Amino acid sequence: MKRERRIFSPEDRLAIIQEGLREGTTVTCRKYNVSPSLYGKWKNKYLSRGTEGLKPAYHRVDPELRALEQENELLKRIIAKQALEIEVKSELLKKNPIQVKIRR
């Protein structure tokens, strides 16, 4: 029999923890088909960080932030290219100074 992965919202997790405190861990874990170790993890996170600890731990990257980072990288490459061009031109000018003739 294949086990289906269930996703509990932070509110569900909090309700299960509170019920476990009232009615007992074993009864609550059997009722919701949750392992006691998972219940313990949820409880420890709740006791240490409150309701923020029950929220999912993954972090999504904001699309606006990703676009700004890409733009920043592009601008850095442009500046590096321009700096290299300026350095090459200044080296060429040192080797072959341009003689400007002034007519009077």
Rank of each mutant, 00 (worst) to 15 (best):
G24V: 06
S90W: 04
R22E: 11
T25L: 08
L92V: 00
K95M: 14
L21H: 13
E87F: 12
S48Q: 05
Q18S: 15
S35W: 02
W42M: 00
G20W: 00
Q70W: 15
R77G: 14
L74A: 15
E85T: 12
V61W: 09
K94E: 07
L74H: 12
P97E: 10
Y46M: 06
I78K: 05
E91R: 05
G40W: 05
T28K: 03
S35Q: 02
L65I: 09
E87M: 03
K31C: 01
K76L: 14
I86A: 06
K76F: 11
T51V: 11
Y32M: 00
L68F: 14
L92D: 03
G24H: 05
V27I: 11
E64L: 07
R77V: 13
D62S: 12
C29R: 02
I78M: 10
K76S: 15
R30W: 02
I79R: 01
A80K: 10
G53R: 00
E87C: 06
I86F: 07
L38W: 10
K94Y: 13
P63K: 06
R66G: 02
R49G: 04
V61I: 14
E87L: 10
E64S: 06
Q82C: 03
T51K: 06
Q18C: 12
I98T: 12
V61G: 04
L54H: 09
Y46S: 04
E71D: 07
P97G: 10
E71K: 06
N44F: 10
V27D: 08
N72H: 05
E71Y: 07
S90I: 02
K31P: 01
K31T: 01
Y32V: 01
K81S: 13
G50M: 00
A67N: 13
K43L: 14
S90K: 07
W42N: 02
G24W: 03
V88A: 07
E73C: 15
S37N: 08
K31I: 02
K81A: 09
N72L: 09
E23C: 09
I16D: 08
A83F: 11
N44M: 10
K41D: 10
I17Y: 11
E69V: 08
K89M: 13
E73T: 14
L75P: 04
G50V: 00
E71P: 05
L65P: 04
E69Y: 14
C29V: 03
E87V: 09
Y32E: 00
I78F: 02
R66I: 01
A80P: 01
G50T: 01
Y46L: 04
E91I: 01
K95R: 11
R60A: 14
V61L: 12
P63M: 01
K89P: 00
T25P: 00
V34S: 02
L92E: 04
L68N: 14
R22I: 15
